[in-house]
Design a protein around this nucleic acid. Sequence first.
DNA 1: TGTACATCAGTGAACGCGCGTTCACTGATGTAC
DNA 2: TGTACATCAGTGAACGCGCGTTCACTGATGTAC
Lengths: 191, 191
Amino acid sequence: MRHGPTTRQTILDQALRLFVEQGFTETTTRDIAKACGISEGAIYRHFQSKDEIGWELFHDSYAAMAERLQGLIDAAPDFAAALRAIVADLCRLFDDEPFRFRYLLLAQHAFLHRVTAAMKSPIKVLRGLVERGIAEGRIGVADPALATAFAQGPLLFAAQSIVYRALEPPLAAHAEQIQQATLRSLGYRAK
Amino acid sequence: MRHGPTTRQTILDQALRLFVEQGFTETTTRDIAKACGISEGAIYRHFQSKDEIGWELFHDSYAAMAERLQGLIDAAPDFAAALRAIVADLCRLFDDEPFRFRYLLLAQHAFLHRVTAAMKSPIKVLRGLVERGIAEGRIGVADPALATAFAQGPLLFAAQSIVYRALEPPLAAHAEQIQQATLRSLGYRAK
DNA sequence: TGTACATCAGTGAACGCGCGTTCACTGATGTAC
DNA sequence: TGTACATCAGTGAACGCGCGTTCACTGATGTAC
């Protein structure tokens, strides 16, 4: 295929799935090639290394998610609405693109050493929102680091429970409960 | 050393640390041997394989934690006291044995396929407590799977925040806040 | 106590295997004239 | 339109390396008599 922008995307798609299912190190270039129906050599027409595939998958999704969350926050009328919008959106992302969602969680550890302080990150965005909530007197938990930690719990453990087959999918079906649990865990009080 | 029960333990200790710091697959038998100050061959006097080291570290701690949590629950006068005791105890464990604590979280994924349904597990113990709380009308979240997920969030994300240096150690210093956030996220109501 | 043998933790070189990556080559498609 | 050459994705065998594991050997300690 001369005009085949599809092979590169196929490699990304299959690698994403395999990295989540088997782990990054545990996935071989032979696995990826086989899943794509191409030879191993062909991978290196599109990427310099296996590491580059992993990093590109992480970096692009990570930055995109940060922008997306910031957009939701900017569009929301107040703190609680912003938090609710984020939870609802991430539930949808988990249901629609489970591999992308899960890869972001896994790859955080693996590529942490490459995440520079300058990079936008979903965690920083969330922390910004939490700090605003504290400043506006909406949140009972005074320590922003602790509050940011608490804010992640309900959504991400609910997602994990679905992965481990302890909780019934889709995650969006539990969005309302997750939103409430998140607000409660922060000690939210309405105006 | 003829009467040297220390080498086996040294291997376990160093492997635990390395598995947490670098990952299981990323840690080589050369790494372990070097950290212990022994040859690679010596490892195989005490363990059949690298996998066995990983599994033993996981299985022993996993079962021990399950027993420990069940003991705390049995000794507590009511639901809230049990949950508080668990949180306080796990905070202490994280501070005292950070590698053991973190390894349990990491290895869950890696050894999940070997965790049989018959094995005792901290998650099952927690779920049992949560179900009791729901039955006794103490918990607002009706779905036990969802409530079990919520119950893990404040503690484990606070722990992760310390690992990522976002939150000030020790974890025990935040125990009170974590206990309250856990109860709140479950929609706890006192008698 | 002294001697002969057994036991066992530890050594370190070596093994085979599977990994990520390379590279000479193929064949289809695009371009120049 | 036809011909010659350029470009490029893809092939698949091969490469070197580092991995987990093995094994013949050593030397210290325990045991039998």
